[in-house]
Nucleic acid binder design. Structure first.
Length: 434
RNA sequence: UCCUCAGUAGCUCAAUGGUAGAGCAUUCGGCUGUUAACCGAAGGGUUGUAGGUUCGAGUCCUACCUGAGGAGCCA
């Protein structure tokens, strides 16, 4: 007997096949049952008629509980009345495990609160909406890799355990490394990327990063995934161009390949289809002026707050590129603008619809003396950065790169309220379980 | 760390300081085209914890715990 996935059902119309899966929902109407079976690729509505089945089979199905595992055998048929467009006429059922009614599956088809759902996260990911989001995430990650891999970037992943802060400013998670040594969980692979870029030209790292910030908002996780491309012989303009192309490509891929999931999420496709080049570009100076006109308290020299980012993002139908921030609020390694040393050659991409910063990057300092000066100004331990300074001693070149946060991109593309739904098991300020 | 809000049945929520209730879920019954099906019935409670006020507290007060939203910080 052929086993198929529900996603492939359209290619098996008229055949009798098996679908291994789980009971998603069951509607009963006397002598006819409508079990809905999910298998990870989709949901199949089945039809079981009492007079077409052995009594034992019909009764087993009739009293089956939600999320019981089963293998259904039956004939696939096109059916307009079925949610997926196809339906299976049940001929046989093998129940692998019947969920006990004393402890029924906790996530019912009705509404639930977020606390309960987060406690049940290991089960919640089976639900239609969560499932759709995680499939969009997968497409986003695949698209990122496909874009970079086909544009000359080499994946060179960077360590998770790091001996010191990359940026000195934010809080790091520390962990014991054997006897008495402390190491920190990486908050960015960037410094190492600069080393690999000098070896490979164009590189990227892609993995989890950790920030021990006591942030408790819809845009924050303590563990999140970031892709960080870095390019030798490159400038701020290259960062803006590559990041823009990457975003346009990723959005296009999701719209093309995950249309069904976006429909499940009731995402307004027109909001994604408008994400085309060129993106609007303004300077930090212009952004501050714009925000002040909108009533923000921001002064030149300050960083954008959450509401500021929302104001900037909502003014456009595609990501907004803001560049040349005050050097004082940027990390030590940013190259200053040669014409205006008080601003850094950095750029942030602010997503529309209030999703905030999704890309941050810029050009790095390539002059060893200037880098040393900055390290001293920021009171960073020079010894820890000896290897990093070496990169400026042995064939230094202008170079630039950026980081893009996967969860914020996914939240934006899916139109979600909160990034916690964009990763299977989110880690947040007050949640590390399950 | 700070501000605001909330904790009542497995879940989502009601309940003037005066007998703790509904829908869903579960079980039983009915229904041959259901779309979070519907209809009928049953079981299901230490009202987050500890004190206090009161004849009487789910409700008012205090502290704590847990969670949510936000600020700062950040992708």
């Amino acid at each position: 007997m052929t086993r198929i996935t529900i996603a492939d059902a359209g290619r098996h119309v008229g055949e009798t096949v098996q679908i291994p899966g789980w009971l998603y929902n069951l509607r009963r109407s006397g002598k006819i049952l409508f079990p809905q079976v999910r298998d990870g690729t989709g949901i199949m509505q089945c039809v079981a008629q009492k007079n077409a089945l052995p009594e034992e089979t019909f009764n087993a199905l009739r009293h089956l509980t939600q999320e019981s595992s089963l293998i259904v055998t039956g004939r696939i048929r096109e059916e307009q009345r079925a949610p997926g467009g196809y339906e299976m006429d049940v001929e046989g059922v093998e129940v692998l495990q019947r969920v006990a009614e004393e402890e029924p599956y906790p996530i019912t088809p009705k509404e639930h609160g977020i606390e309960f759902l987060m406690d049940q996260r290991h089960l919640w990911i089976r639900s239609r909406r969560q499932h759709a989001i995680l499939r969009v995430r997968h497409e986003v990650i695949r698209a990122i890799r496909d874009y970079l891999d086909s544009h000359g970037f080499t994946l060179v992943d960077t360590p998770i355990f790091t001996p010191a802060a990359c940026e000195g400013t934010t809080t790091l998670f520390e962990t014991k490394y054997f006897d008495d040594d402390l190491v920190y969980l990486t908050q960015s692979g960037q410094l190492y990327n600069e080393a690999t870029a000098m070896a490979f030209g164009k590189v990227y790292c892609f993995g989890p990063t950790f920030r021990a910030e006591r942030s408790k908002t819809r845009r924050h996780l303590t563990e999140f995934w970031m892709v960080e491309p870095e390019m030798a012989y490159a400038t701020l303009d290259d960062v803006k161009q590559v990041a823009e192309e990457l975003i346009v490509y990723v959005v296009g891929r999701v719209v093309e390949n995950r249309r069904q999931d976006l429909a499940t999420l009731e995402r307004d496709l027109s909001k994604l289809e408008s994400v085309q080049s060129p993106f609007p570009r303004i300077s930090y100076d212009e952004a501050v002026k714009f925000l002040q006109e909108k009533g923000s308290e921001i002064q030149w020299g300050g960083d954008f707050g959450g509401p500021d980012e929302t104001l900037l993002g909502e003014a456009h139908d595609r990501p907004l590129i803001v560049d040349r921030f005050p050097a004082a609020i940027k990390a030590f390694y940013f190259q200053p603008d040669p014409e205006r040393p008080e601003v850094a050659l950095g750029a942030d991409f602010i997503a529309p619809e209030g999703y905030g910063e999704i890309v941050g990057g810029g050009q790095r300092i390539h002059d060893p003396d200037l880098l040393l000066k900055r390290i001293e100004e920021h009171n960073l331990p020079r010894e820890a950065f000896n290897w990093y300074i070496d990169l400026r001693r042995y064939g230094s070149v202008p170079h630039a790169g950026f980081g893009m946060g996967v969860e914020r991109v996914v939240a934006w593309l899916c139109g979600l309220e909160h990034v916690r739904e964009t990763i299977a098991f989110p880690r947040m300020l007050y949640r590390t379980r399950p």
